[in-house]
C-alpha cells in the first residue's frame, strides 16, 4: 500500500520508519509546516534526519500531500477536542478522494464519530482507528471480532502515565506531586500531563469504545463522559487501599450506554491493576465471558505498529 502520513510526532515518524519493513511505501509525509512527496517512496532515513536537524520534513507545502498518489491516509496529527481539527478535515479530504484512512488521532472518532461515519458511507474508502485505543493492544479489533453487540462492558486502564503515577504512589507511599515530577524527569509524563492525569485522554478512548459498541445508535462525545482525574489522590489513600489488599487505578468503565472515568478501588494484583506504564483492559462478552488484554499501550513504535496492522487489514 502507498501511504500518506500526516503528523511527524512520535507516531507519524515511527510509521514512516517502519512502513518499508511491513511492505508499504510512504509516498507523502507532512508535519504542520512542511511536506515531502515522492511517487516512488520517500527516503525515510533522510527525511527523519531532516526533521531532527531542521525541524521540517521537506520543502513542499503541507497541502501538496493531498495531490500525491496514495492508497491510505495515516492521520497522526495531535488529538484536538471539539471540532477535532485539523484532523477531521484531513479525513474528509481523503474520503472525498475515495482513499482509505487509518487514524492514530483520537479527535475525529471521539468528538465527531457520526460525521466520520457519514463521510465514510459516501466514500469508497474505509476508516480504521485501532491505534486510538490502547495503542498496540488489540482492543478495538477484539471487540470487532467478538461483535460489538455481544460486548456488555469494557473497563480498565487506558493511560500509561496515570497508571505509572498511581503504581509508584502505591509502591513508595509518595504523594502525587512528587511522583509526577519523577515521571516527567523519566520522560514517562509529558511537560504538560494535564490530559493524562485529569482523565481526558482515558475518557476519549472510552468514548471511542462506546461509539463502536453502540453501532451508530447513539453518538458519544467527550461531553457525554463522566470524568474525574487523579490529581487529588494522596499517598495515604493508596495506603488505606493497600491495607485491604486493594489499590487505586484510573479506570474507564464503558457499560450500559455510559462512559465513566475516575479513580477506582481495584484488587491489588487483579486484572486491571497493571504495573508501570502498562494498560490493562477487560472485555465482557456474551458466551466468551471476560477477555483480558494487558501490555505496553502507547509509545511511538507501539502505536505505529497498530497503525500498520490497520493498514494491513485494509489491504486484505
Amino acid at each position: 500500500m502507498r501511504l500518506c502520513v500526516l503528523g511527524a510526532g512520535a507516531v507519524g515518524s515511527a510509521v514512516v520508519e517502519l512502513a518499508a519493513e511491513h511492505g508499504h511505501v510512504v509516498t507523502a509525509f507532512a508535519d504542520s509546516e512542511s511536506a515531502v512527496v515522492d511517487a516512488d517512496g520517500i527516503d525515510a532515513d533522510a527525511v527523519l534526519a531532516k526533521k531532527q536537524e531542521d525541524g521540517v520534513v521537506g520543502e513542499a507545502d503541507p497541502e501538496a500531500v493531498f495531490d500525491a498518489d496514495y492508497d491510505v491516509l495515516v492521520e497522526a496529527t495531535p488529538t484536538t477536542l471539539g471540532d477535532a481539527e485539523p484532523g477531521f478535515s484531513h479525513v474528509e479530504r481523503a474520503l472525498a478522494d475515495d482513499r482509505d484512512v487509518v487514524l492514530a488521532n483520537k479527535g475525529p472518532v471521539a468528538e465527531r464519530y457520526a460525521d466520520v461515519r457519514a463521510l465514510e458511507a459516501e466514500s469508497e474508502g474505509t476508516v480504521r482507528f485501532g491505534a486510538t485505543v490502547g495503542g498496540a493492544l488489540p482492543i478495538l479489533s477484539t471487540i470487532e471480532d467478538v461483535g460489538p453487540s455481544r460486548v456488555s462492558a469494557v473497563y480498565g486502564v487506558l493511560n500509561g502515565t496515570a497508571n505509572f503515577v498511581l503504581s509508584r504512589m502505591a509502591a513508595e507511599g509518595l504523594d502525587y506531586e512528587h511522583v509526577l515530577a519523577e515521571a516527567q524527569d523519566l520522560g514517562v509524563a509529558e511537560a504538560d500531563p494535564t490530559f493524562d492525569v485529569d482523565g481526558t485522554d482515558t475518557a476519549l478512548k472510552g468514548v471511542i469504545v462506546a461509539n463502536v459498541l453502540s453501532e451508530g445508535e447513539t453518538e458519544f462525545t467527550l461531553d457525554d463522559a463522566d470524568v474525574e482525574g487523579i490529581q487529588e489522590l494522596s499517598g495515604s489513600m493508596l495506603d488505606l487501599a493497600q491495607e485491604d489488599g486493594q489499590t487505586i487505578r484510573l479506570i474507564v468503565e464503558v457499560a450500559d450506554g455510559a462512559v465513566r472515568v475516575g479513580p477506582r478501588l481495584v484488587p491489588g494484583h487483579g486484572a486491571v491493576a497493571p504495573s508501570g506504564t502498562e494498560n490493562a483492559v477487560q472485555i465482557e462478552a456474551d458466551y466468551c465471558g471476560r477477555l483480558g488484554i494487558t501490555g505496553q499501550g502507547a509509545g511511538g513504535p507501539e502505536t505505529a505498529s497498530a497503525v500498520l496492522t490497520d493498514v494491513e487489514r485494509l489491504a486484505d
Binding site: 456488555s152 462492558a153 473497563y155 487529588e232 489522590l233 489513600m237 487501599a241 486493594q246 487505586i248 479506570i251 468503565e253 457499560a255 465513566r260 475516575g262 479513580p263 477506582r264 478501588l265 481495584v266 486491571v272 477487560q282 465482557e284 471476560r290
Partner: peptide, 11 residues
C-alpha cells in the same frame, strides 16, 4: 469530600 468508588462494572 473526595470519594474513591470500587470498580463495580461488569458484575
Amino acid at each position: 469530600l473526595q470519594l474513591v468508588e470500587p470498580l463495580t462494572v461488569g458484575g
